[in-house]
């Protein structure tokens, strides 16, 4: 365990909590993709299947349970909460899950560390996490709506991915047998997609700055 890894996990948790608390406080989920949230829950569930038999540390187990619980709560708010679900932008959030799930499943069957059910589901979750933000990016591009909620959420998610890369570099330098190509390549793809989001975020920020200038 190193400082980059701990920072990354805390940032990841913060990103989810920021989203959850803002939905709770404002009773609105405008601009948030339910598809992305459901894909993240699928990522957590398929990756943390080992929760019941593979005890690594209390730290890991607590984070796994908290990630699953908090992302379930976000989905509950968006689908079931009477006020919040009315603010969900259903008409623009039309990305098809299967376009992501099928390629990730096929890739996990072909490129994996070991051909076993648990290993393939774990690998699937790594691939799926890399692309799960795509429905959110598509929704953003369609609505051109980058408000504080989506901005802060994706900013924290991007920081979380950046700290995981630092963690891998640190571990590669300090642990003799540390190597994880599947995770590294997927992580790089994922971080690249967040950079795309940052680009739109900065553009929207610049435009709103320009609009405030006196003409």
């Amino acid at each position: 365990m190193n400082i980059f890894r701990v920072s990354a996990d805390i940032l990841h948790l913060l990103s989810i909590l920021v989203l959850l608390l803002k939905i709770h406080a404002t009773k609105s989920c405008a601009g948030i993709s339910l598809k992305t949230q459901e894909l993240y829950l699928a990522v957590f569930v398929t990756r943390y299947l080992d929760l019941f038999w593979n005890f690594h540390s209390l730290y890991n187990s607590v984070f796994k349970v908290v990630y699953i619980a908090t992302s379930s709560m976000i989905i509950w708010y968006m689908k079931r909460h009477r006020g919040v679900k009315q603010t969900y932008d259903k008409d623009h959030d039309t990305f098809r899950y299967l376009f992501l799930i099928v390629p990730c499943a096929v890739l996990a069957l072909i490129v994996n560390g070991r051909f076993s059910l648990f290993e393939i589901l774990w690998t699937f979750s790594i691939y799926l996490e890399a692309v799960a933000i795509l429905p959110q990016l598509v929704l953003l591009q369609r609505t051109k709506n980058v408000d504080n909620l989506t901005g802060n959420y994706v900013f924290l998610l991007g920081l979380y991915r950046a700290f995981y890369i630092l963690n891998w570099i640190y571990r590669y330098a300090t642990e003799p047998h540390y190597s994880a190509w599947i995770v590294w390549l997927s992580g790089l793809v994922q971080t690249g997609l967040y950079l795309d989001f940052f680009y739109y975020y900065l553009q929207a920020w610049k435009q709103s700055k320009k609009l405030q200038l006196p003409s």
């Binding site: 996990d9 540390s57 796994k64 047998h177 540390y178 190597s179 995770v183």
Partner: peptide, 10 residues
Amino acid sequence: AAEPAEKDEL
């Protein structure tokens, strides 16, 4: 304990 290193990450 024979799990690969990347499995101890979240």
